[in-house]
Design a protein around this nucleic acid. Structure first.
Lengths: 121, 121, 121, 121
DNA sequence: TTTT
DNA sequence: TTTT
């Protein structure tokens, strides 16, 4: 079992690229406010596939999102030394902003929740 | 282990009362939209203590919230028959609405996320 | 967002059948012990596909499992009255028993954790 | 919202100390097997208070546990450079081993699940 | 209806 | 009984 749930805001614009296999990969980082008003924690988020594309297209720095995913340890070498860090692989991303939100029918794989009264859900 | 995380909207105004022990108890129900735009699921939510008071005071029918909690089975008797249902005991409630959101410093036990554009990211 | 994580034991043997579409569907219920030793909560669990088959094959009444999934509201009519209940749709099931545990290579879609003493930690 | 749920095994003995405030603090790391049998991810875990004491006393390297908690970013300076890493602050720890498991009445704050048939639950 |  |  490996399950993570967060609500926060992107601290920068999501950056999407396509891997050699043609799969979309978006990287972004999230600020999660602490419960008792003392600052935030910042985590790196990795998103694959259609959700990666939607996130890059419909959200930006400052966007509020809810994410469901799992923790992953990324490892690499630098100067002959093994390094590692923890990232969140998001398997679902939910737009929580007014401006950016879209209907579920328009954006595949997203669950948008709107605040505007004039949007025809 | 017993952990639940939801984002949705209250389907009615939260109803708060105080138990005989003087502890605040709020009951409300939440609509959680499904991932692929086909309707919603509706769950009952129970909240205790200071968070119960804040929820009753600062949210209402239609308010968007994120909740962390656990599943609980409530049992009772009706017409001599045992009945039971599943409710969510919310241990944290996060306001996700513009209108209702307050700073973490103002509302004890809540993590509010503002939609203002002046966030220092 | 709709995410549930539980650890508990099946209170009865998992019952599997195939739907008209040929998809495996397993129903079972789980007992989740409360944190402070005062009894348990009982929830219904629904599992689809290959995981449904594996659960039916490799677990039974009393088996200890960890499950990741989501809450779902089931509705039906009885005596002309609308009835509804909450079930957990398990998207991952992890075997936590010695006897039943199998390697990840043997059972597709499962993450088994063995109790053997020869783990290379 | 910031919620993490993991099942895995300690990769080393939990190390407990008391902070200047007299609060118990246990550090340990966990190996979480991946879903499809390809290795594991390793995360650092921090535990406070009574649960920290129980974890240090009743579990050891190789112990299987379920943890509920939250993600936290730890930051420090090294060689004048800001460094940071992600750790899991465990708010609940559930013993999943036969050998180590104890009844809920004996160990405060733990939910133990036994595999032995001869333990009088 | 309930697991250990 | 249901939110947007």
């Amino acid at each position: 079992m490996n399950s993570v749930n967060l609500i926060g805001r992107w601290t920068r614009d999501p950056e999407m690229r396509f891997t050699q296999n043609g799969k979309a990969l978006t990287k972004v980082s999230i600020a999660v406010n602490r419960t008792f008003g003392e600052g935030a924690d910042f985590f790196e988020v990795v998103i694959w596939g259609k959700i990666a594309e939607n996130t890059a297209q419909y959200t930006k720095k400052g966007s509020k999102v809810g994410i469901e995913g799992r923790l992953q340890q990324e490892t690499w070498e630098k100067d002959g030394q093994k390094r590692s860090k923890v990232v969140i692989v998001a398997e679902r991303v939910e737009f929580l902003d007014n401006k950016n939100s879209q209907s579920n029918n328009e954006i595949d794989g997203f669950q948008a929740i709107d605040d505007d009264d004039d949007i025809p859900f």
